[in-house]
Each structure stands twice: as structure tokens, then as C-alpha cells.
Amino acid sequence: MNESDLKPKLGRDGEPMVGTNGRPMHELLDPPQLRGKITVWRFVILRRITQIGILLLFFGTAHWGWSLAGEPLLSGNLSGSEFAGLIPMADPFAVLQIVLTRAIPDTEVLIGAALILALYGLIAGRVFCVWVCPVNLVTDLAGWLRRRLHIKDLLHLPRTTRYLVLVAALLLSAITAVAAFEWISPIGMLHRELIYGIGLGWIAVLGIFILDLFVIRHGWCGHLCPLGAFYSIIGRRTARLVVAFDTASCTHCGECATVCPEPQVLNLKKLEQTGWVTPGECSACGRCVGSCPEASLEFHWSLGRRDGLEPKFTQFSPEIISQRRSP
């Protein structure tokens, strides 16, 4: 990427704005050439590849007989699956609901749920939401259209609503003796019907699309979905993948918050204190990383303690930044 891709950010008076660190502010990265665009959108492209790829693995196993060492490659779906007849996997939230119905599930599904819990606990809980969940394809489309059409929010709903929905799902599972969210989940409907055949599940998905496009920005994924709420609790303390923040280069232009689907996680004061985005509600979608004009945000993966990272990310000189911008 070139230095020329940076457009100065102008204030209301038409003058270039200056950041808190004395450096000039810039607009979100939006380079004209394809190569630059790919750099900015690289995580979105990767996410589409994993989302569609995982769907394809399920579909290919179900319909085209894909196999590995004589066993079905990936049978089942995101609720419960088995890789190569060996590794069971299960949705830990669904299993938690089943346990609350007081039916003791078989060990296989308990092991599967524990594996998935450990996986997302160690990476970052909501990695599921934006790198795997098929509903994200729908809500991202709604979000993109919404930006294009400049649609404003109709309702305000606190982002904590999803935790109340989560509690309701667990209570209802105990009361009705069926896994309450699994019985109405639009995620399950979309995913199942893509693999096993189309029914009326698209109505629920259309509902989410309309909600996200016209009523509330990121209404489903960011406000209501109890599975997202569950995953944002998972890994709040254990996540190893974080978005690291560089105080020195950040001009406080605030552009990252305009592309972030969970902008409350980009609290600049908090970022300056910790040096990274607090794991939990951050879904590690990488939009901010791709489009920050100062390259102040970057994915950081560490198996050990995260304290050691601060000096590296707070000492950026403008030269290092321009180096990082041209891969």
C-alpha cells in the first residue's frame, strides 16, 4: 500500500484534523487499486472462505460422499458433528440446554462440547460468530447495504439484551424440557436447510435481514443472539487471540468504531490502558485491523501472558508504520 492511499481527514471547517499525538488524522483506508482493496479487506475475504468452506465440508459429506480414510469427512452440522469418524464436536450452548432439561446426554456429545468449548475458549469465543456462523453472511450483507443506503437506527436496544435472551433460553429449557433456543434458532434453521433441504427457515433469516437492514444496526448478532452472548462469555479471560493496540501511532480519529460491529469494545481510554481490545464481545472480525489508516490495530496471538506485548506495540515510529503498510 502506498502513502498516497491515505486521505487526510478534514474537519467541519475544511482544515485537516490533527490527532492527539500531533500526527495528522486520515480517512479510513479505501485504496482505489485492487491490490490495496484486497489488503484492506483481507480478513473479510478470509472469513468468507472459512464460512463457506465449513458449510461446503458439511454439504459435500452429506451429498457428495466426501470421506477421509473411509469415514465420512465431516458428518452432521454445527449443532453436532463428527470429523472422519473420530473427533466428535458439539455446540456447547445446545448441550448446556439439553443438560438443563434434565436429560443426561451421552458421553460422545459431552466430549464434543468440551472440545469446542476449549477451542473457542483458547482462540476467542466470538470467532465462531464471524468466522463460522452462516447467519453472519446474511447480517454482513444487511450491514453493507445499510451503510450504502445510509439508513439510521429506528430503535435503541441495549447491547446487554442478548445476555437476558441467554438467561431466558436457559430458564425455558429447564421449564419446557426441550432445548429452548435450538427449537427456534434461526442459525440452526439456516444452517440445516442449507445442508438438508429448504423449508420455511428462510422466513426467520429474512426476519433477521430486515431487522438488521432497517431497524437496528447489527440488531441480531450484536443485540439479540443468545449464542453470541454465550460465546462472548467464553474466553473472556482465556482468549489468546486479541486485537492489539498501539497508543503511539493512534490519532484518535475514531474511524475504527465506524466499521466495528461491536464499537463499545473500542473504548480508546481502555485501549490505552491495556494495549489491546478486551476479549469477549469483540468477534475478531478484523475490520478495524484492515482499515485503520495508521495501522494502530493488529491481530496478536500469544500462548503465554500478554503483558510482554506492550513495548513492541507502543514504540512505533512513523517509519515502522509505513513499512507495515506496504506488505
Binding site: 458428518s75 452432521g76 452440522n77 458439539a90 455446540d91 439439553i98 436429560a103 424440557a177 445442508i195
Partner: peptide, 17 residues
């Protein structure tokens, strides 16, 4: 029916088997 509804996780592995 009750037991079946409580336990089924709707994964479809039986369908594929």
C-alpha cells in the same frame, strides 16, 4: 416423545448414517 425431544440436538448424523 419427551425423552427424544429433550435429547435430540438436531445434528442430522442419523440422517447421514
Amino acid at each position: 416423545r419427551e425423552e427424544f425431544y429433550a435429547r435430540c440436538i438436531k445434528c442430522g448424523q442419523c440422517v447421514q448414517a
